[in-house]
Design a protein around this nucleic acid. Structure first.
Ligand SMILES: [Mn+2]
Ligand SMILES: [Mn+2]
Ligand SMILES: [Zn+2]
Ligand SMILES: [Zn+2]
Lengths: 140, 140
DNA sequence: TTCATTTTTGTAATCATTTTAAATAATTCA
DNA sequence: TGAATTATTTAAAATGATTACAAAAATGAA
């Protein structure tokens, strides 16, 4: 938790109790949670936590590059404390979001970083959809 | 318009007046429109058109692979009548969505098509964000 | 035409997110 | 220290996109 404090500080984020709890949650849950999921999980720890704080904080984290805001899910935004370049896969049966760390991806990302034609690039999101192993097996 | 009828039919979609008008709109407006934009544009042509029909139809088009449902915009879903593999770029200043047809992209897409590890892939969406040329120049 | 099926429509409901303004906490510096 | 300023959090209300639902209209086969 002391690490989290330093991590936030070093990224220009004042480490309030709420912010540390939210960052901790993101760093320890690689499930690409929704706002609702984070809220439900943190309520026991921070009984007065409001959704507005959650939204504000996640926006701040995204601006300061300590979290990714994922648009892979058509219903709701998901968040990721892992900011290393990687792609995602969402299972259309169970909704789970999986990480995809492939060698070619960072390459592709850096390849296009900064500019494509006259467009100034600042970020990229690569999202796959399909059926995960668990759900595939269930069908048999 | 006769072409549109055949296009829909050949993809197993019954070509109603509404469906043809919506498909025509998507094919002739490569702007990645929102539901709202499509609705406003078509209302003069189809005065009784309902939003529900629009949502149903766009979902159907997406299922039948004659349109893409894009999640690049965090506020609203956008649609694309161009189903050839390509990536998108959204300007964070003006909100416009641009097409990116790069040689490497179809490669990457086909590379990962079908499977990554044990995940069964059915589609991929590649989304860049940044500032477009127009907005970049305005700032100077 | 008759009956069944498909499609469209309008309304209401839902749900994620944003707005707003007040309350609380932290920081500054006289 | 302690009053003033600034930053953060909170709760409630508003917004906006999407979905659910049930009735009406259109289509198509028998
Ligand atoms: Mn991830
Ligand atoms: Mn496109
Ligand atoms: Zn699954
Ligand atoms: Zn722009």
């Amino acid at each position: 938790m002391e690490q989290t404090k330093d991590y936030l500080s070093s990224h220009g984020i004042r480490p309030s109790a709420q912010r540390m709890a939210i960052m901790d949650y993101l760093l320890s849950h690689k499930t690409h949670p929704t706002v609702e999921e984070i809220y439900t999980a943190l309520l026991p720890l921070l009984p007065t936590l409001s959704k507005t704080t959650l939204y504000n904080t996640l926006k701040l984290f995204s601006d300061k590059k300590v979290a990714l805001m994922l648009n892979i899910d058509e219903h709701t935004t998901r968040f990721d404390g892992d900011v290393k370049p990687h792609a995602h896969f969402q299972c259309q049966v169970c909704g789970r979001v999986y990480d995809i760390f492939q060698e070619e991806l960072p390459e592709l990302v850096s390849l296009y970083k900064q500019q494509i034609g006259k467009l100034l690039i600042s970020s990229v999101e690569i999202s796959y959809k399909g059926v995960c192993e668990m759900c595939k097996n269930k069908k048999d």
